[in-house]
Simulated assay, not measured.
Amino acid sequence: MRLPPVLRRRGVLVVVTAVLVVALSTLAFRLWYLWPPADTSVEAGFARDMQTHHAQAVRMALIVRDRTTDREVRTLAYDIATTQQQQAGQMYAWLDMWGLSQASLGPRMAWMRQDHHTGAGAAAMPGMATPAQLKQLEQAGGKDAEILFLRLMITHHQGGVQMAQAAQRSSQPQVRRMAGAILAAQNAEIGLMRRMLTARGATETPPASG
């Protein structure tokens, strides 16, 4: 059975569009591989520093899974650990493909401060828990561990959101997509963790002592 001319033209248009999409994707990948970002670029800095940031989130998630039996907290911790391990693996692979080292000789977080007029400067990695806070989480248990984890992870996610927002100025679509995925996931999880704190009768900021 012969298709009507209108349907035949639509079919040809769909095929041509698909071929163009594949061709453009292939070209983008070749450019990504043949002309990699510079060692001091936003892309390289984001890939390196977000791996470090993700590694601490994974560590906190694994700690709390051993410190509580609460299903909701354990599920959240598992989701954070698996998602961020996978993303860190992708960023490791980027650096390897670009022929760049996993560590930079320059100051950490300089890529977030790059500006046409001021140049680059080092900055603290936002949202990171201190060694004392990590030790406190390791020593806590039950509801106390849950509340501490939620507070620390909210702050940690807020820092991750800042880093992902800065990475969206990248010229590389793969990097912008990764940054967008981090923004969406971590903003959603911040909202969830705030609700979980409320359900446990706790606030985002611990009450002042004294």
Rank of each mutant, 00 (worst) to 15 (best):
M1T: 13
M1N: 12
M1Q: 10
P4N: 15
P4T: 14
V6I: 15
R8E: 10
T17R: 13
A18F: 15
S25W: 15
W35L: 13
W35R: 08
A38Q: 09
T40W: 07
A44M: 07
F46K: 00
F46M: 01
F46A: 00
H54I: 01
H54F: 06
A57I: 08
A61W: 02
I63W: 00
V64Y: 03
R74K: 08
A77D: 07
I80T: 10
I80W: 05
T83N: 10
T83C: 06
Q85D: 03
Q85S: 12
Q87F: 00
Q87M: 04
G89Q: 05
Y92S: 01
W94C: 02
G99H: 05
A103E: 09
R108Y: 05
A110P: 00
D115I: 08
H117E: 13
G119M: 08
G121Q: 11
A122R: 13
M125G: 03
M128V: 03
P131V: 09
Q133C: 10
Q136H: 06
Q136D: 06
G142F: 04
K143R: 15
E146V: 01
R151K: 09
M153H: 09
H156A: 09
H156E: 08
G159W: 13
A166I: 04
A167I: 08
G180D: 01
I182V: 12
I182R: 04
I182Y: 03
L183W: 14
I190R: 00
L192T: 10
G201C: 09
A202V: 06
E204I: 14
